[in-house]
Design a protein around this nucleic acid. Structure first.
Lengths: 340, 340
DNA sequence: CTGAAAGCGCTTACAG
DNA sequence: CTGAAAGCGCTTACAG
């Protein structure tokens, strides 16, 4: 049906091998032949069949990248950082949309194996035995992004240093003079790390730990709004003298602000509030939210770099990478005013 | 290196053809043989090489789907609607992230051809001659999603009926009693359609057309905020007696609200405002934005259905589809109060 | 600098 | 019900 390398060869009276060589940029070809071939390719509108190529070669130049939830803009920046580096290095990305389903991930891994991807960057919500086993058998380089696999799995990861980040945020808030600081816990593994940092910080500084965790999903804005709302309610009812809140995400922070708004409390005059993620709406004047940026694009890039290092065997066993975060100060947090 | 169909065949003492047949679910196989083969597959952890399969078969069961900007959550819902239907029908999706670049799209089409995708769902920002030419030569079914190709191209599309939608929104606003209604134009092709409807509506009802178009990109929230802000400023300065604003998107509406907030004007008491898109943050109490939903998931699904119809030749030349929209009434729009 | 040949791992008529 | 053989469209040593 479509034109093949044989047609091109026939058309210019050379062998298939020769056409293949010019296609692949070999240099030991006479300029005349090369030109003839290029002309024929153009003339016949020939496009090499990549499935045949992939079958022949040992590599496919395809990297799989899973996106936990395509509707969540959060992950997109990771992806676009990774994609950029990969494209620069001649790889194509095959995205997999997991929609928060463990089964879809397993299924995707199977597909990756069938298609003989060169490597995988994954962000599983959970590290089940079944998942680890599948990864073990898949026999291709795998890097975890924003998720930390069990040490024993041997899967390297790139993540933010959430512990350090949370410590920094708490330091920032106490530097403003706050001592009665509550924490809204994000109900995920990352949230657990932040809470640990929060509690450690409270203990070190001898201030009361006031963390609240509501067991409702908090990924999407509308869910997080409810979660943050309930958490803020409990904080307000339990520790009414709280002067600052460190929310596990911007989404939770906004949920908390909805509650405060209802109660007629104003931010930051009555209470300071800070989030994490630097979502695009965090800077809107209604929120003007102090937050922690996770440098997502850079992270995606780092994961891709790590994977390429493994694939190209520059560094077969890379060390895990914990990237820094940065605090973006806006108007939702202010100095503690005694009796203010 | 990895185990092949030959290994499986050898392992159970049958021919490669037989293994292939059980793999592909042929029914004329003795149960005994089938069981032996399945056992061997399990035992050897055999996974068929899909690149070989794709080379052999006439189809690849892969559909390409372009995402104009992976960071824009807007398109993700389209994608997830399309993906769902495609998966149900045994197809895999190969996403392409265009990042608003025409070159990346051209490149992606080339890749689709190399990989012999079975079909393509695309959302190009512009229909250039080069693009149309590439599509013409690609020789695979193509459906346009949310973009309308030139009639002559023969490429069918699925889109919202933006004209009708805008008419409905204007009807809604005039039904509330408003007659001095401004329109903030989204600077894209879709925006042009909405403006046309707006102007036609104004003419029919004999009310003054007050549309403003700012030539700044308005895709992302931060850009749209600036755009909407400037547009609202101009509206306010030019027609200070305006009582309602129909903004081309929620993002623009929020930009407009930033301006109104600065000026100390309140929504909806001083001015009603409505958007389009129903972004997740539109329902936050600070905005409580009346908006128009585009039923994005359903749209993605419809595009996928149209593509499958073509691929499976149920309907070689489908008619274009214009899907309806729905108005979501919230608190940002109220009845016009004389002198209020 | 170029060609003939084998091979990548499957599928699919064709026989029997 | 099963096998032998050809073929999908490339690439890659191997010769010359």
């Amino acid at each position: 049906m479509s034109v093949t390398i044989r047609d091109v060869a026939k058309f210019c009276g050379v062998s298939v091998s020769t056409v293949s060589r010019v296609l692949n940029g070999y240099t030991d070809i006479s300029e005349e032949t090369a030109n003839k071939v290029f002309a024929a390719i153009k003339k016949l509108d020939y496009v090499p069949n990549n499935t045949a190529r992939m079958l022949t070669r040992k590599d496919t130049k395809i990297i799989g990248l899973t996106i936990p939830d395509i509707k969540d803009p959060f992950f997109s920046e990771n992806a676009s950082g990774a994609e950029k580096l990969l494209l620069e290095n001649g790889y194509q990305i095959f995205y997999g949309n997991m929609e928060r389903s463990a089964d879809k991930l397993l299924n995707y891994l199977q597909q990756a194996r069938q298609m003989r991807f060169d490597g995988l960057i994954i962000t599983p919500d959970e590290w089940t035995e079944e998942l680890l086993d599948t990864i073990r058998r898949i026999s291709m380089p795998v890097v975890a992004l924003r998720r930390r696999p069990p040490q024993s799995s041997g899967v390297p990861f790139v993540d933010n240093d959430h512990y350090k980040g949370a410590m920094e945020m708490m330091t920032y808030l106490t530097d403003l003079g706050h001592t009665r600081i509550a924490h809204i816990v994000l109900p995920t593994g990352i949230g657990a790390i932040r809470r640990e940092a929060y509690r450690d910080f409270c203990q070190i500084r001898s201030i009361e730990a006031r963390d609240v965790k509501i067991d409702l999903p908090a990924n999407k804005l509308d869910q997080a709004r409810e979660n943050g709302y309930q958490a803020m309610k409990r904080i307000h009812e339990t520790w009414p003298d709280t002067t600052a809140v460190f929310a596990g995400t911007d989404q939770l922070a906004i949920g908390a602000m909805v509650y405060l708004r209802e109660k007629g409390l104003s931010v930051p005059a009555d209470i300071s509030i800070a989030g994490v993620n630097d979502m695009d709406y965090a800077s809107l004047p209604w929120f003007d939210l102090t937050t922690m940026s996770l440098n997502r694009t850079e992270m995606g890039r780092a994961a891709a770099q790590m994977l390429l290092d493994i694939i190209e065997e520059r560094r077969p066993h890379p060390e895990n990478l914990l990237l820094g975060t940065s605090i973006i100060v806006r108007g939702s947090t202010i100095k503690y005013k005694n009796g203010g």
